[in-house]
């Protein structure tokens, strides 16, 4: 209930911040109004700019904002709302041109005033930001260069848009309006300062040292971190953190990974990382003693946020990592509630953590179903994918009372969500973790 109230409060704050320019324009209005379409177009430009400015706050992982929603919701919201904000901003010049075609001359960079050049450049940069984010995988743009260009282009776009407003000048002619833009500007720059300067300083003061890099089955490595000169972090099983290694926290070379260790382990934390891309393929090269920085914990994919009489974990591939953390924590807590694990893997050899899972069975009330895509000869377990039939046959009678955690590749998650829906599992008893935040 408290989380819901905080969520609503943040939505109201968001709306107020987005609409602040329009409120000030109405309050401090001294000039006569202009044509309806022109005012509408300008209103869309202003709210679009506010929304873009607020995007920095959404991705700053500012805890009071992240906590009530969960970081996955905040990041997906950031992605979706950016498309809407871009459409508003795009509508701004289109409506002006439609209303007054003579304004099309502003598109000529040789004759256009500075205000139009700033506005157009901001729009082009924003279009690039949106295009590169939505099409990153399709055009094979790697995460690191995308992340750098994303930050630079977005900051550039907002600065250019602010310059556009200042240069047009029509809406900054009273002290109240000037004050508004100064406050908004300070707020946006403040968010950037928090993200790029203050937070890295705090991280530098809380470093970790790599204690061990352990090879696991399925091209996965577990990296164990020991806090250096501090008590480490307390996380909930199933959560994740952003890892920076071989770089300073001031660089933005950080990657999100789930904890795989028990949350009851004192000090030490472990992340398990599967070789999937540039950075993850180099994790095995990390040597013990290397300094690292962790920003976290984040996420609400945790049994601690979803009390239930029993749990069902549905994991595919590396999706087993946060599940391992929850299983290990349940065992360490001597929790004897029934737990079912449906674990889809390519083959038996590459089934990550299978020995650890077998060992956990002796310490807790755990039932495991391995599902192999490519079984070896003699395999008598389920083959292929986690299907509705497999779930229907093996879930207990009280399955609608249990809480379900799903983590794995997108297609597997979709299929499992559909299967659970067909089995009559209420949607609010499903929690899914998607690794593709960006």
């Amino acid at each position: 209930m408290r989380r819901l109230l905080y969520s609503i409060a943040w939505i109201v704050v968001y709306l107020i911040l987005v609409l602040a320019p329009l409120l000030v324009l109405l309050i401090g209005q001294e000039r006569p109004g202009r044509e309806l379409w022109r005012e509408f177009s300008i209103a869309l430009g202003f709210v679009g700019l506010s929304m873009m400015g607020l995007q920095f706050l959404l991705t700053s992982r500012f805890r009071p904002v992240v906590r009530p929603f969960g970081i996955d919701v905040v990041y997906h919201f950031h992605r979706q709302i950016s498309i809407i904000a871009f459409l508003f901003i795009l509508a701004h010049p289109i409506m002006l041109f439609a209303f007054n075609p003579r304004l099309l001359s502003l598109l000529n960079p040789f004759t256009a005033p500075l205000s139009a050049i700033f506005g157009l450049s901001a729009l082009i940069l924003l279009a690039l930001v949106v295009f590169l984010s939505l099409g990153r995988l399709r055009i094979n743009l790697k995460y690191e260069p995308w992340r750098i260009t994303h930050g630079l282009f977005a900051t550039g776009a907002v600065i250019l848009a602010m310059l556009h407003v200042l240069e047009v000048g029509y809406y900054i002619d009273t002290p109240a309006k000037r004050a508004l833009w100064i406050v908004l500007g300070v707020f946006w720059v403040g968010t950037l300062f928090y993200m790029r300067i203050l937070k890295p300083i705090l991280m530098v003061r809380r470093p970790y040292r790599v204690e061990e890099v352990r090879a696991e089955r399925g091209n996965t490595h577990t990296v164990v971190f020991q806090p250096e000169g501090h008590n480490g972090m307390r996380f909930r099983p199933g959560q994740f953190a952003w890892l920076t290694v071989w770089a300073s926290p001031f660089s933005i070379m950080e990657h999100p990974f789930s904890f795989s260790s028990s949350s009851l382990e004192k000090g030490k934390v472990a992340l398990s990382i599967k070789e999937l891309g540039d950075f993850t393929s180099r994790v095995k090269e990390i040597t013990p003693g290397t300094r690292a920085y962790l920003d976290g914990p984040y996420g609400v994919f945790s049994i601690d946020y979803h009390p239930a009489p029993g749990y069902v974990f549905l994991a595919g591939g590396v999706g087993i990592t946060p599940v391992m953390s929850m299983l290990r924590t349940l065992a360490d807590r001597n929790d004897q509630r029934p737990v079912y694990l449906f674990y889809g893997s390519k083959d038996w050899e590459g089934t990550t953590f299978r020995e650890d899972i077998e060992a956990l069975k002796t310490r807790m009330n755990l039932t495991v179903f391995y599902v192999l895509e490519e079984p070896t000869e003699g395999w008598d377990g389920p083959v292929g994918y986690i299907t509705p039939d497999l779930l229907a046959e093996n879930l207990p009678q009280n399955r609608v009372e249990l809480t379900y955690f799903i983590c794995g590749p997108e297609l597997m998650m979709q299929a499992v969500e559909d299967a659970l829906d067909r089995l009559g599992i209420p949607p609010d008893q499903l929690t899914a973790e998607r690794f593709n935040l960006v």
């Binding site: 939505i11 968001y14 709306l15 987005v18 609409l19 329009l22 324009l25 109405l26 209005q29 006569p32 109004g33 202009r34 044509e35 309806l36 379409w37 022109r38 005012e39 509408f40 209103a43 869309l44 709210v47 929304m51 969960g70 996955d72 919701v73 905040v74 990041y75 997906h76 919201f77 992605r79 979706q80 709302i81 809407i84 508003f88 969500e417 949607p427 499903l430 929690t431 899914a432 998607r434």
Partner: peptide, 30 residues
Amino acid sequence: MRKTLANQLAIAIGIIILILAAIYALIQGT
């Protein structure tokens, strides 16, 4: 599920902002 929630939240907020921007234009415009 949570992705859908984020999408719906973004669309709802987008619509509210669009409506309020239109109301502003109605008040301000001639």
